[in-house]
Nucleic acid binder design. Structure first.
Length: 468
DNA sequence: CTATGGCACGGATT
DNA sequence: AATCCGTGCCATAG
């Protein structure tokens, strides 16, 4: 109802317009792509016009002729991000000129649009050119759990390379999210996850051995036997087991997407980003380039011939044609509205969260959707819809839900992680709470406990037996 | 007695 | 209107 100030130039004209705008706003670009493809197929009034590519970066240009990225001088610093709606180009062909060679790009493009692509996005920049086919082979052979069920030997022999090289590629993949993806067994996945985790925070001393030697006991929950194996008490063994089951996942792809630990066991689909943020150049104060991924490449418009032909159409078809036309006009308008909203949303969000985007979790400024809505002079629900289910890709190529940007406590939890990582001997929740106050965060002791739980960190007493 | 987790309440957020 | 989140209080474990 309160959308009227959303855009000065595009006023919702009808309730239908309004309703559809809201619906479109909720859709991710992947979903929107399906919808538009369906409309294009069924509605003759719609027309998709090809538009030229930017010769330098291969972005497909909409209306604005100069490419917004390449035409920007490399030097300047600006608080204002370069922000625009861009059709999703093939990210591989842009990065490091992937796709220049024919045979390889075919192989890449045959990857299914799912987990494989998701992982590929992350490792692409670190992947040596010659190793691309190997990575592709591994990624396309994953099962639905994200594990590699075929043997590395087989791949090595197929490509005539050494086993070591395959293993290198595999370990690169394993360190991408979801952690442990591409492992040859659940056990290996657990070990990789444990290793990554141990770089961030303390982990129980015997965890690696428990996984290596006591996996049977772990899965059968026979903790006394596990304890006996490791030479620790049954209670400690039980704690160890709960640490493992809470923080590690033997089937990487069954995990939820993103690093969030808030358990969300319902279908964990890996998403392609709806918004891509990159740095314009390597300089310290580079402007950010924000691209709202548009689901269609080219410009969508009403076919002018269709409009002309409307008058001459036989009477019995006229009604149908008219409704097609109306529908098409509505869709185009609503799409503009959607883009407009997303652009404005990201505009202020990126300026506000620049620190976070560049430097990570600790710098996230807590902001509520409501406050942002006020600033942008749109209704709260508009922001909610725009944020829901969207994924952003940061300059470091991590893909995360946009909703993470509205996490009220992420920055405090990050500081809490740092405190615990630096602690000499385990601190009690009360002590941590005091330390946090020194950092300027006043949180209750009870809340510290909750944050700990969220991060999967055991209580102080049980942290004794930690660290290897 | 101290440290923690569970439950539940109230205010904020969606 | 429904949900989430921080907190206080209390029971329990060590």
């Amino acid at each position: 109802m309160l959308l009227q100030r959303q855009s000065p130039t595009l006023r919702p004209l009808t309730t239908a317009h309004l309703a559809q705008t809201m619906t479109l706003l909720e859709l991710t670009s992947d979903e929107l792509r399906q919808k538009i493809e369906a409309s294009l197929a069924s509605n003759p009034a719609l027309e998709l016009l090809d538009t030229p590519h930017c010769p330098q970066c291969h972005r497909i240009l909409h209306n604005a002729e100069p490419c917004p990225v390449c035409s920007t001088p490399q030097n300047p610093f600006s608080d204002d991000p370069i922000i625009f709606v861009s059709p999703q180009w093939d990210f591989i062909s842009r990065e490091n000129n992937y796709g220049d060679e024919g045979p390889l790009s075919e192989e890449w493009s045959s990857l299914p649009e799912d987990l494989a692509t998701f992982v590929l996005r992350q490792i692409a920049p670190e992947l040596a050119e010659a190793d691309r086919p190997l990575a592709a082979h591994i990624l396309t052979s994953l099962d639905e759990d994200g594990l590699l069920r075929i043997s590395l030997f087989e791949i090595a022999r197929y490509h005539h390379v050494t086993l070591e090289r395959i293993q290198e590629v595999q370990s690169l993949i394993q360190r991408a999210e979801p952690w442990g993806v591409g492992s040859s067994s659940p056990q290996q996945a657990l070990l990789v996850q444990l290793e990554i985790l141990s770089e961030i925070r303390p982990v129980p001393e015997h965890a690696a051995r428990a996984i290596n030697e006591g996996l049977d006991f772990l899965s059968r929950h026979t903790y006394h036997e596990l304890g006996r194996l490791l030479g620790i008490s049954a209670e400690d063994a039980a704690q160890l087991a709960s640490f493992i089951s809470e923080n590690l996942n033997p089937y990487p792809a069954r995990a939820h997407w993103g690093p969030g630990r808030a358990d969300n066991p319902t279908n964990p689909v890996y998403k392609n980003p709806d918004i891509i943020i990159t740095c314009l150049n390597e300089k310290e104060n580079t402007p950010l380039v924000v691209e709202i991924v548009s689901p269609y490449a080219g410009s969508l418009r009403i076919n002018p011939l269709f409009r002309k032909a409307l008058n001459q159409v036989p009477a019995e078809n006229a009604a149908q044609w008219q409704s097609d036309l109306d529908e098409a006009v509505l869709l185009v308008k609503c799409l503009q509205q959607r883009n407009n909203t997303l652009v404005r949303l990201m505009q202020s969000l990126v300026i506000l969260q620049r620190q976070y985007i560049m430097e990570g979790n600790a710098q996230l400024i807590p902001i509520t959707r409501a406050r942002l809505a006020e600033e942008l002079e749109v209704h709260e629900s508009t922001i909610s819809r725009a944020v829901a289910d969207k994924a952003v890709q940061l300059p470091n190529r991590k893909i995360e839900p946009l909703s993470k940007w509205f996490d009220r406590s992420l920055h405090i939890r990050t500081v809490l992680l740092e405190i615990i990582a630096q602690e000499v001997k385990p601190l009690s929740d009360t002590q941590i709470a005091d330390l946090l106050v020194e950092h300027g965060f006043s949180v209750a002791r009870r809340t510290v406990a909750k944050y700990r739980a969220m991060e999967g960190i055991l209580p102080a007493r049980l942290r004794q037996a930690m660290r290897s």
